[in-house]
Structure formats: C-alpha cells, structure tokens
Design a protein around this nucleic acid. Structure first.
Lengths: 247, 247
DNA sequence: ACCTGAACACCGTTCAAGT
DNA sequence: ACCTGAACACCGTTCAAGT
C-alpha cells in the first residue's frame, strides 16, 4: 500500500479522495521530471515513481504507459524548456547561443542528453527547434546539407553533455581514471600518453581548472564544428552546387 | 543446472572434468564477446552468458567479476582489434583511416561505441591508440590542444557509431520516426521541418540511399571535425601561442 | 474509469556448502 | 581453488478483482 497520509478516513467515496490529490498523467510526469532532476533519468524506478505520487505501479501504466513512455514524456518536457535565440542573429552566434542554452537545460536533467543523442526527441517536441535551426542554415546557404549540419551540431552537443552526465555518475561511484592517466606524464617512450598524463595532472592540481574543464571541452567541440561548417559553406558557395552529392 | 552434455559420468574427479572444458576468465570473455557481436552489449544477461559457457552465474563472478567487469573486458578486447594507420601519413589522412577502421570494428560489436563515448576505454586498452593519435597531433603542431583535439575526433566518431547501433535496435523494435518526419515535407509554414521531411522522404523512397546514409553522416561529421581542426591549426600557427588558454 | 493488491517472470548478486 | 545450488532483494509488467 502506498503510505497513506493516515487521515481520519471519513470520506465515503472513492479511496483516492481520502485527502489524496487526483492522479493524472501530468502529475505523474511532473514527479518523474523532478526525480530526473534530482538523480538522473536512469536512477529511479517505476516503483519509486509510483511511491512519489502515492500510488500503485499499475496506476502509472493506466495513466501514462510503461517506463519508456514515462521517460519519453520527461525528455519531451525537458526539450520544451529550451529557449530559441533571436532568429536574426548571424548563424554561428545563433547556434552558439542555442547550444549554450541546451547544455544548461540538459545538465539540469541528467540522462536526457544521452537519450537525445541516441534517439532524438519525439517529433512533436523537436519540431520547434528543428524548424528554427534548419531555417537558419537554409537562409545561410547550406542548401540540402542544412539537415546534416543541424544534426551534426545538435548531436555533438548532446554527446558532450552526455559525457559530463556520466562522468558525474562515475565520480559518484569512485571510478575515475584521471589519476591513472596522470602517472604516464613522464613516460618519454609514450609521448602521446605523456601529453595526456600531463594534462590530467594539471587538472588534478587545480580545482578551478577542473571545475571549468568540461565547459571548455564543450565550447571547444562546438567551436570546431562551427569552424568546420564555415569551411564547408565556403566550398558550397564556390562550387555553386548545393547538395549532398558533392561530398 | 547448466545443461550437461549427459556424458556417461565415469570420471571420478571434479565435476567440471566430466567432458566439459575448464572454465577460465579468457573463455568467459570470449563467450561474452561473441554474444556481444551477435546481439549487442546490452542484450545478454549474466545468466545467459553463464549458460553459454555451461556454468553457473557464480562462476562468472569467481573468474571475472560482476557484469560491469565482464562488459569492460569485452570493450577492451574490441578496442584491441583496432588497427593503427601508418604514422607517417599526413594527419588528416591518418585520422580519416583510423576512424574508418574504428567504425568498422565498433559496428561489429554493437553497444561498445556508446560505452566508449561515455566512459572511454580502460587506460590499458586505450594507451596504444591515444599515444599514436596524440603523437600525430603534437607533431602536426596542435601543442597543448592535442589532447582536446584527439578527444573531439574520437568522441565524435564513437557518438555517431553509437547512434547507428541504437538506430538498428530501434528499427528492430519498430520505433522509427522517419515516416512521421516525412509527413512534414509540404509544410510551407515550417520550412525547416519541411526540409527535414523531404530528406526523410527521399530516404524512404530509395533503399540504396538509405543503406549508405549512416556511412555518409559519419563521414560528414568526421570531415567537418577535421576541417574545424585545420582551421584551428592555422589560428594556432598565426598566434604562435600554443595552448589551452587562448580559446 | 480508476485503483487495489498480488502475482509473474525475470534480473544481478551473494553465500554456505560441497569437492 | 573452484564449483554447486539455492536464496535474496530487487525490477518492469500484467491482471483479476474491487469500487
């Protein structure tokens, strides 16, 4: 039994009316979104969600569906939080702002980034941002490659946020390779590994550096993608042959 | 009981010697790798793995460890299959070849790409390719950014392979949004979505195009990253200030 | 229509006991 | 040291029965 609020139970009508608010799909998704914000998308069970809304697991099925349906609803809700930049911005700046906002939103709901990177959002939730983003690229001159370029930017962004999310999870579990990598920093026989080891060592020594590290990695990735697309745009304009065929 | 081969049972010594080969960590990881190749890293259970080597689940724990330990061993083995290009190749070509090989290897063992994108390989398994890759970038002139650039390339590659893997899984489950997106292709009010819809529609109409689609998306992503890094390299050479600080 | 309460068929993991 | 066999504490999901 879901822990009842132990009311006096004078109500003769339906059980749920005994002081408990009505259970709706919306309320369930609210609770699931809250749980996701607190522990991440993969770190709550349907049974815990049911407990959170003071209901039985079967009630979740009745109102929303199986776990996957709940998760999809949560991801859609999170995607809905994303704000779109001013459409009149230059395209690089438009995407820089979009992706900065995306990181902020996704980081607040761990696990959503991974889900988005792998499956994408539902068509309905995605429409707003896809339309805006592809429109910016079309207007810029990416032609038939606009969709490809949009996907590259969004997926790269989601991927790097997913890495951050999982990194937090790994840190919580005390599985952190940083120290092990750092031991390689004097290995003259492996100069590549030594470079990595030295970077990891710097990171370990400076908490401020470590705090901003992932933001920097994210910005680096986004910036390199934008640079690569800028280069491609010049190629497209030169050849005057927009489209996928001329890769 | 693991389905015994129902031998005559004349052997007096240990149970395992009744016609069954000795169980070793190596044999377990072999079996796990085979299962992964057949169904993907997330689509077998420890109990199935135990059955595959005709042993009890506890035997897996005894020789290898928990499920995570087995999975890590499988991923390490898959990473070991990767061949490194000739170190004298120009850097872009070196990475183009590396990442083409990476896609081939990872696609043969679904689920490994995602794991790699999120956690990276174990330090030991990674050493070979990290050292070679970072060395190429150092020699090219990326200086302190070599590690960042290496990670960008490898993570982008893994991410796109992971998307392919999961796409296959989703197709098996008949959750495919392509058709839904295609319905937007005449929506003049949503020109961005219409562009996407039209791309999806083309894909649905031409099986050959669809077959090569993900390879193309992968190559596009890799190429844009390389272009972006080439651009960055020029900036670094101009400023003559190698390092992370000048982002 | 909505909720209850129990059940089903799994899962990863642990452990005392055997040899 | 290695294996057995059973158990534990979960999980998502289903379903007949209640109101």
């Amino acid at each position: 039994m879901p822990t009842s609020s132990s009311g006096t139970g004078q109500r003769p009508r339906s059980r749920a009316a005994a002081g408990l608010p009505a259970i709706t799909a919306d309320r369930i998704i609210d609770a699931a979104t809250t749980l996701t914000g607190e522990r991440g998308l993969d770190n709550w069970t349907l049974r815990e969600l049911a407990r959170a809304v003071e209901a039985y697991p079967a009630v979740i099925y009745h109102h929303v569906g199986d776990r996957d349906a709940v998760v999809n609803a949560v991801v859609d809700r999170v995607v809905g939080l994303l704000e779109l930049p001013d459409p009149d911005l230059p395209w690089q700046q438009w995407f820089t702002e979009l992706l900065a906002g995306l990181r902020a939103v996704l980081r607040a709901y761990p696990g959503c980034a991974r889900r988005l990177a792998l499956f994408g959002p539902s068509v309905e939730a995605a429409t707003r941002s896809i339309d805006a983003g592809v429109r910016v690229l079309l207007r810029t001159g990416f032609g038939r490659e606009s969709v490809l370029a949009y996907n590259l930017l969004l997926m790269t962004a989601c991927q790097f946020v997913a890495m951050e999310d999982d990194r937090d999870g790994a840190l919580a579990l005390r599985i952190d390779n940083t120290e092990e990598y750092a031991t390689y920093r004097e290995r003259a026989d492996l100069p590549g590994m030594a470079e990595l080891g030295s970077a990891m060592h710097d990171l370990m020594g400076d908490p401020d550096l470590a705090a901003g590290y992932y933001a920097q990695v994210y910005d680096y990735a986004v910036q390199r993608c934008l640079d690569g697309l800028t280069h491609r745009l010049a190629e497209l304009r030169e050849s005057d042959d927009p489209g996928l065929t001329a890769t």
